[in-house]
Design a protein around this nucleic acid. Structure first.
Length: 421
DNA sequence: TCTGGGGTCCTAGGACCC
DNA sequence: TCTGGGGTCCTAGGACCC
C-alpha cells in the first residue's frame, strides 16, 4: 500500500500560519508578478475564485468579499515544505517527494499496521509540529493513492484520510471520481474519454488495453493498470537530478531596452549556473529566449530562441552568462517589438565528474571552480546576491510586482515573527 | 514494368504534472 | 496598467546509415 500526503491549499495555509487572525477568512496567493491566483483557502474557493484567474479581473471580488491577498513568498513555502517532508520521513521506510506540497510514502513494509490509524497520526503530527493541514490517501497504487487523497478532501474532510482498504471502498471512490479528475488525464484526454462514453474512473477500468494503447499511448496503458491496482509507475526514492533547468521571468512591464534585457538574461543565466552547481552537474548547451506579451493581440508578436553549444561542458557563472548574452545578441530585434519576458535554459545536462577535459580549453577550470565555490558559500550565508558579476548589476532595474509580500518569518532573523505579550 | 528492409538519432510538438 | 514559472514523458517524422 502507498500513501499520498498532500498539504491543503499549501501556499494559503503557509501565509495563514503566521497570521492566525486570517483563519476562517478567504485568502489567496498570487503567482509571480502578482499575475494570477495560484492558491486559495477553502473560503476563497467557496466564493468561486478560480485557479489561474488573472488578479486584476478578480480585484472587485477581492474587495467585495474582504479577501486577503498575498504575493508569492517561495522562501517561506520552501522552508515550511522542508519541515513537512522531514516530519513525514519518520512514518515510512521509503518516500518520494513529488512536489513542494506532496509526498508519496511506501507503506509496503509495514505489516500489522492499522493504515487508517497511521494516516490519522500523520495528519495529526504534521498539524501539531508545523501547523499545516494535510490530507492522506492510501491505496495499492500511486494513481489510486492520489485519487484517495482527493476523495478524502471531498468526502471525509473532517477526518482528512481515506484508505481504499477493500473492493467496496475502492469502487465507491472510482465511481465518485470523474475522468477529468484522474491523475494523468488532462483536458484533451478527458474530452476524448467522455466522447467515447467513459465518464467515471470506474468506467475507465473497463476500457480494453488495445483501445487505451491506440488512443492514449503507453501513458494511458500505465494509467489503466494503476486504476486496476497494478503498480505501473516507477518510484523515485532519491531526488533525481534535473535533465533541463530553466530560469525565466516577466520584466514586470513591456520593454525594448537592450541593456535592461541584458541585465535580466545575465541574472537568469547566473541562476541556472548556480542550480547546476547545486546538483553537481554541467551543461553543454544554453538556450536563450525572449518573447512579447501574447495577451496583447494588437501588438506584433514574437517568440525567439537560440541554442548555443558550449566548447566545454560548464557550470561556471561567467561562462554561462557569456554564452547567454551571445545568444541574446543574435535574437534581439531592436525597435521592432515590446518584450514581456526572457529566460535562459541549460540543456544536455550531465554529471560534473564525467566531463572530459578539452585540450584547447582556454579557461583555467580548477581555479574558477574554487572561485565559484567560494562565491556560492558567501552568497549562501550573506544573501543570494552579495557577490555577482558586473553585468548582472546591483540596482535591479526590472522588477516583478509583489505588492502583497509577507515576511520571511522562518529564514531571516530580521523578519522573524514578533509577539507582543 | 520494376525502386528493400532494416536500423539509429534527433527534433518539434503535444500531452500531462505541480 | 494588469494574464506565472517551472518540469516530464511520448510520438511522429525526417535525416542518415548499411
Amino acid at each position: 500500500m502507498y500513501a499520498l500526503v498532500d498539504c491543503n491549499n499549501f501556499y494559503a495555509s503557509c501565509e495563514r500560519l503566521f497570521q492566525p487572525h486570517l483563519n476562517g477568512r478567504p485568502v489567496v496567493v498570487l503567482s509571480n508578478n502578482d499575475g494570477c491566483v495560484i492558491s486559495r483557502s477553502d473560503e476563497a474557493k467557496a466564493l468561486g475564485i478560480a485557479m489561474g484567474t488573472p488578479a486584476y479581473m478578480s480585484e472587485p471580488s477581492f474587495k467585495k468579499n474582504d479577501v486577503k491577498v498575498f504575493s508569492s513568498n517561495y522562501t517561506l513555502y520552501g522552508d515550511l515544505s522542508d519541515r513537512v517532508i522531514k516530519t513525514l520521513a519518520a512514518f515510512a521506510p521509503r518516500m518520494e517527494v513529488y512536489s513542494i506540497d506532496e509526498s508519496f510514502l511506501d507503506l509496503s513494509d509495514l505489516y500489522n499496521t492499522d493504515l487508517l490509524q497511521l494516516g490519522i497520526n500523520i495528519r495529526k503530527t504534521v498539524l501539531q509540529n508545523i501547523g499545516i493541514p494535510v490530507c492522506v490517501g492510501i491505496a495499492p497504487t500511486k494513481t489510486l493513492a492520489k485519487m484517495a487523497n482527493r476523495y478524502a478532501k471531498k468526502k471525509y474532510k473532517s477526518v482528512g484520510v481515506f484508505y481504499a482498504a477493500n473492493e467496496q471502498l475502492k469502487n465507491e471512490m472510482l465511481e465518485y471520481t470523474e475522468v477529468g479528475d484522474i491523475w494523468g488525464v488532462g483536458h484533451q484526454y478527458a474530452l476524448l474519454l467522455k466522447k467515447n462514453g467513459f465518464h467515471t474512473a470506474k468506467d475507465v477500468t473497463h476500457i480494453p488495453a488495445d483501445w487505451m494503447r491506440q488512443n492514449m499511448s503507453v501513458v494511458g496503458l500505465r494509467m489503466l493498470n494503476e486504476l486496476n491496482g497494478i503498480p505501473s509507475i516507477e518510484w523515485e526514492y532519491d531526488a533525481k537530478s534535473k535533465k533541463n533547468i530553466c530560469t525565466s521571468r516577466s520584466f514586470g512591464k513591456l520593454t525594448n531596452d537592450y541593456s535592461l534585457i541584458k541585465e535580466a538574461v545575465s541574472n537568469h543565466a547566473a541562476t541556472c549556473a548556480l542550480k547546476l552547481r547545486t546538483q553537481s552537474s554541467v551543461c553543454t548547451e544554453i538556450n536563450v529566449f525572449i518573447g512579447t506579451n501574447p495577451h496583447k493581440v494588437e501588438h506584433k508578436q514574437l517568440h525567439h530562441a537560440i541554442t548555443i553549444r558550449c566548447s566545454t561542458p560548464t557550470n561556471l557563472t561567467k561562462e554561462i552568462i557569456g554564452y547567454a548574452l551571445k545568444g541574446l545578441d543574435i535574437i534581439f530585434r531592436p525597435d521592432e517589438y515590446l518584450y514581456m519576458k526572457c529566460g535562459v535554459m541549460v540543456l544536455n545536462i550531465m554529471p560534473e565528474n564525467s566531463v572530459q577535459a578539452n585540450m584547447f580549453d582556454g579557461v583555467h577550470r580548477s581555479r574558477d571552480k574554487i572561485l565559484s565555490k567560494t562565491v556560492d558559500l558567501v552568497n549562501k550565508s550573506m544573501g543570494k546576491d552579495t557577490v555577482r558579476m558586473a553585468v548582472q548589476r546591483f540596482e535591479r532595474r526590472y522588477k516583478l510586482r509583489a505588492g502583497h509580500l509577507s515576511s520571511k518569518y522562518t529564514t531571516d532573523i530580521n523578519q522573524i515573527l514578533k509577539v507582543r505579550i
